[in-house]
Computed example of a mutant assay.
Amino acid sequence: MSRGVPVVGAVTRGTTNPNRLRRMDRWIAATHGAELRRADHPVVVDLGYGAAPWTAVELLHRLRTVAPRTRVVGVEIEPARVAAARPYEREGLSFRHGGFEIPLPGRPALVRAANVLRQYDEAEVAAVWQRLCARLAPAAPGRGSPGGLLVEGTCDEIGRRHVWVALGPEGPRTVTFATRLGSLERPSDLAERLPKALIHRNVPGEPVHAFLRDFDRAWAAAAPYASYGARQRWIRTVRDLAADWPVTDGPARWRQGEVTVRWEALAPRG
C-alpha cells in the first residue's frame, strides 16, 4: 500500500505455472510494443500474479525484447506472496502489495490481469474494469498514442487456451481468442475460458454464443484444409468468419492460433 490507500479486491487462488501466459504476452508484445517504445518510462503491472512470480519474470523478458526500457511491477493482494517474490527482484522488476487500486505513483502503460476476475460475480466486472481503466496512461492523439492498455482474461492451467478482453482508457476495445491449435477439436472449446464478462453469456440470444456457433460452422466447412495442418484450417476458418464478424487482425496473428474481434460485436445484450 502507498499513502494509506486501502487495498481493493479479494485474495485469489494464486494458481500459476511457468509459461502459462505466453500467448497473452506475445500478443501484448506484438500489438502494444509500439506504445511501450513510445513511452519515456513505460511501467507495466502484472496484477494478481499469484503464489509464485513466474508470470511477472516472463512478462519482463518478453516485453523487453520489443521495448527495452519497460519496467514490470508485480502487484499482489496477499502479503505473503509479495514477500516470497521479493528475492526475484532485479533491475526493471519489483513487487508490491496491493489490488485494483494499483499502488503506483504514476499511470501504467499496461495492466495485465490474468485469471483474476474468475472468482468474482459478473455484476462486479464493470466496476473493476472502470477502476483499472482510470489508472491507465491517458491517450494522446496528437502524439499518435491510444493510451494505456488493460488486458483482462482467462486461460487454462498450462496456457493452451486463452480468451481476453483488451481495454483502453475509454473502455473495452477487442476480444482475443488464442489456442494451441494441436489441442483444439472445435473453436467453441474456448468457451470454457471466456472471461467473466462473457462466460455466463454463452447462451442462445447472446452475441458471443452466435459468434462461437458461426466459428464452429466455419471450422467444419474448412475441414478439407486439415490435410495441410491445423494452422491452415484455422486460417481458412477465420478468413471465412471475417465475412460476417468484425475481425481486427490478419494472417500474421491467425498463424499463431489467434483471432481478435471488436468488443462491440460480442458485448452482452443489455
Rank of each mutant, 00 (worst) to 15 (best):
E170C: 14
E206L: 05
R13Q: 09
V259A: 15
T55N: 06
E58Y: 05
E91L: 14
W254N: 04
T16P: 08
L110M: 11
V75C: 03
L93E: 01
R236Y: 12
G148C: 01
P18F: 03
H200G: 12
F177Y: 06
R253G: 02
A139F: 05
A56D: 00
L194E: 00
E78W: 07
D189K: 04
L167Q: 07
V125R: 06
A51G: 11
G4E: 02
Y228R: 13
Q119R: 11
Q232R: 06
A126V: 13
M24L: 15
I77K: 06
P103D: 10
T15K: 12
R186I: 12
D249Y: 11
H61I: 14
R236Q: 09
P103M: 13
A191I: 13
G205S: 08
M1Y: 07
L150M: 05
E157D: 10
L241R: 03
H162P: 00
V11Q: 07
W54E: 03
V125F: 03
T248D: 03
A56N: 02
V203P: 03
F95L: 04
A30G: 09
A113D: 02
R193V: 15
A39L: 06
R20V: 05
Q256Y: 10
P68Q: 04
G257R: 05
R3P: 00
R38D: 06
Y88T: 13
R193S: 09
R213G: 02
P146W: 14
G106P: 10
A226V: 14
G159Q: 03
I235E: 07
P204K: 10
L194M: 14
V151L: 09
R255F: 06
A137K: 05
E206V: 03
P224Y: 04
A10P: 00
R213Y: 07
V111N: 04
A56R: 03
T260Y: 02
P103N: 15
A10T: 10
D244G: 10
T15E: 08
E76Q: 12
H162Q: 10
G50C: 02
R23Q: 14
A114C: 14
V7A: 09
A67I: 05
L184G: 01
A222G: 12
D240Q: 15
N202W: 08
R233G: 09
Q232Y: 12
E35G: 04
P141Y: 13
R64L: 12
R160P: 00
G147N: 07
V7F: 01
L104F: 01
G99P: 00
E58W: 06
R233L: 08
V261K: 01
F100H: 04
V57N: 02
G33P: 00
V208F: 11
G205Q: 13
S94N: 08
G74A: 03
L212Q: 02
D240F: 12
T174F: 01
